[in-house]
Amino acid sequence: MIIGVPKEIKNHEYRVGMTPASVYELCQHGHQLLVETQAGVGIGFSDQDYQDVGATIVTNAADVFAQADMIVKVKEPQAVERALLRHDQILFTYLHLAPDLPQTEDLIKSGAVCIAYETVTSARGGLPLLAPMSEVAGRMSIQAGAMALEKSKQGRGVLLGGVPGVEPAKVVILGGGMVGRNAAQMAVGMGANVSVLDRNVDVLRQLDADFRGQLQTIYSSSASVEEQVSTADLVIGGVLLPGAAAPKLITRAMLSKMKPGAAIVDVAIDQGGCAETSKATTHQDPIYIVDGIVHYCVANMPGGVARTATMALNNATLPYIVTLANKGYRQALLDDEHLRNGLNVMHGKLCCEEVAQALQLDYVTSETLLN
Rank of each mutant, 00 (worst) to 15 (best):
I2C: 01
E13K: 09
E13N: 11
T19H: 05
Y24K: 14
L26E: 09
C27V: 14
H29K: 15
H31T: 06
T37P: 00
T37Q: 11
T37F: 00
T37K: 11
Q38G: 00
I43G: 07
G44T: 14
F45R: 00
V53E: 03
V53F: 03
A61E: 13
V74D: 03
K75A: 10
A79E: 13
R86C: 02
H87Q: 15
I90Q: 04
L95A: 06
R124A: 08
L127R: 00
L129S: 10
A131R: 12
A137S: 15
R139I: 07
M147P: 05
M147R: 11
K153Y: 07
Q154R: 14
L160A: 11
P168S: 08
P168C: 07
K170D: 07
V172H: 03
V179N: 05
V179Q: 04
G189W: 02
D198A: 08
R199N: 12
V203W: 04
R205M: 15
Q206K: 14
F211P: 06
R212G: 01
S221K: 07
S222F: 02
E226K: 15
V229A: 15
D233G: 04
L241M: 14
V267F: 09
D270H: 10
G273I: 01
G273Q: 05
C274F: 06
A275F: 08
K279R: 15
A280T: 07
T281F: 01
Q284L: 12
L313Y: 02
R330Q: 14
R330V: 12
Q331I: 07
L333T: 00
D335V: 03
H338S: 04
H338Y: 10
N344I: 01
N344A: 10
H347Y: 13
D362E: 15
S366R: 02
L369G: 02
